[in-house]
């Protein structure tokens, strides 16, 4: 049985997103929550990459021996890949800030339990 690779990628991206949301909302350990958020971000990135996939397409770099017409018909759409690159940077920055906050709160409370740290604190 031949499985469509784009379909499988969409399925994987969807799974990562669902697992990520579940972990971020329902797991108590803050590090597990952060891993869940990383899953969520990666799932979205995979979704974007999969969306930009073009069967039989070529990399969107215009080489001297190509004609414009042939390039326009065969090159993959570059925009999704540019978006992924930007989102990776954003994701890394926000995860760094979250990890920094968790380090401070872990020192202060001596725990990584979200229930213990966040319960009735910020409200």
């Amino acid at each position: 049985m031949v499985i469509d690779s784009q379909l499988m990628s969409f399925f994987t991206a969807g799974s990562l997103i669902v697992i990520g949301i579940f972990a971020a909302l329902f797991l108590d350990n803050l590090i597990k929550k952060i891993i869940g958020l990383a899953f969520l971000g990666d799932g979205v990135n995979l979704f974007i990459i999969t969306m930009g996939y073009k069967p039989g397409g070529i990399v969107y770099i215009f080489l001297p021996d190509m004609t414009i017409s042939n390039f326009a018909q065969t090159a993959a759409y570059p925009l999704p890949f540019a978006l992924v690159l930007t989102n990776i940077v954003i994701g890394a920055s926000t995860l760094a800030v979250i990890l920094g906050l968790v380090m401070v709160l872990n020192k202060r409370h001596g725990s990584l339990s979200a229930a213990k740290i966040l319960r009735d604190k910020g409200e």
Partner: peptide, 10 residues
Amino acid sequence: ALKYILLGNI
């Protein structure tokens, strides 16, 4: 801040 950024990351 942690609560806000966690929700923001969803």
